[in-house]
Write a protein that binds this DNA or RNA. Structure first.
Length: 288
DNA sequence: GTTCTAGAAC
DNA sequence: GTTCTAGAAC
């Protein structure tokens, strides 16, 4: 595995996974930290999550080895900043406890691509606004003429992690979102919505501020469309309300199925058979 | 989250 | 034949 000698362990997040399998991970040139399988290391200001997996006994056949695909992948990733260090798995997946199963599943959510926002929000070139609590970046693949993301500096993985103590922060995120709309030159002619994806793909809670023209080449498929035009998109105000009344945010059952609904215009409710047809239809609602 | 592409739909 | 979607891979 490729480790840089200057890496510093910033914090360790306990995931409560299989406590019986202790592993040790070399974290710097000379330092070594005892860790449990499944623990997450945040290296350098929580930017780069490292997932710790099981390590096979030294007599094991393929412990610590990587497949060529993993090697190639790691080489590619080394050009970016989201590295993923993996120790080898303990065994094949026979007779493993449930917690390991979750471990493997959780590892998915630590995939390099899912950490992209955490990287982007730190990049001054991406920041269009920042204060002591939040930062705003342009969505890398905007689904409309204007599409910003408001992110807290504090690490909060998703809506699920929000609690009452985050109320002020989430309200501030909403305020900043409204500021972004106000400063937009087309704020008078375009409608905006401000909200969260109920089940986001990217780690780090982020508030979408998106104009309702949906006039963008990056809007390409049904999932894109339905994630912004069905109840999959949760209004910021509703999320704040939930936090205030329940102390947490609950996502309705069946929300993920909303992404498969037929394509329907968010303005006149007309159903369109394909994305190209929808895009052509949306032109009729553009400001003139 | 995006890209790529097989094969469904037309 | 081309267009378009959906699932795999990353």
């Amino acid at each position: 595995m490729s480790l840089c000698p200057w890496l510093i362990v910033h914090s360790i997040e306990y995931l409560g996974l299989n406590p019986t399998s202790i592993d040790s991970v070399v974290v710097g040139k000379d330092s070594e930290v005892k860790m449990k399988a499944g623990q997450k290391l945040h290296i350098v200001n929580q930017l780069y999550p490292y997932t710790v997996q099981f390590k096979e006994d030294t007599t094991g056949g393929h412990g610590g080895n990587k497949t060529p695909r993993e090697m190639a992948s790691e080489e590619r990733e080394s050009h970016r900043e989201a590295l993923s260090v993996k120790a080898a798995k303990q065994t094949e997946n026979t007779s493993v406890p449930d917690s390991l199963g979750e471990n493997i599943k959780n590892t998915e959510s630590f995939a390099p691509w899912s950490q992209g926002l955490k990287t982007s929000m730190q990049d001054p070139k991406m920041q269009v606004y920042k204060d002591d609590k939040v930062v705003v970046i342009k969505d890398k693949y905007p689904k409309a003429r204007y599409h910003w993301l408001v992110l807290p500096w504090q690490t909060i993985s998703s809506l699920k992690a929000l609690r009452e103590e985050h109320c002020d922060l989430v309200k501030h995120m909403h305020q900043v979102a409204e500021q972004m709309v106000q400063q937009c030159p087309d704020a008078t002619s375009l409608r905006f919505r401000t909200g969260y994806h109920a089940i986001p793909s990217m780690s780090q809670v982020h508030l979408h501020v998106i104009s309702q023209d949906f006039d963008s080449p990056s809007l390409k498929n049904k999932k894109h469309w339905n994630s912004f035009t069905t109840d999959y998109f949760m209004d910021s105000q509703d999320v704040i309300q939930m936090l205030e009344t329940d102390g947490k945010v609950t996502v309705k059952e069946g929300t993920s199925e909303l992404l498969k609904l037929p394509l329907r215009c968010h303005i006149c409710r007309k159903e369109l058979p394909t994305i190209p047809a929808l895009k052509e239809h949306l032109k009729s609602h553009l400001p003139r």
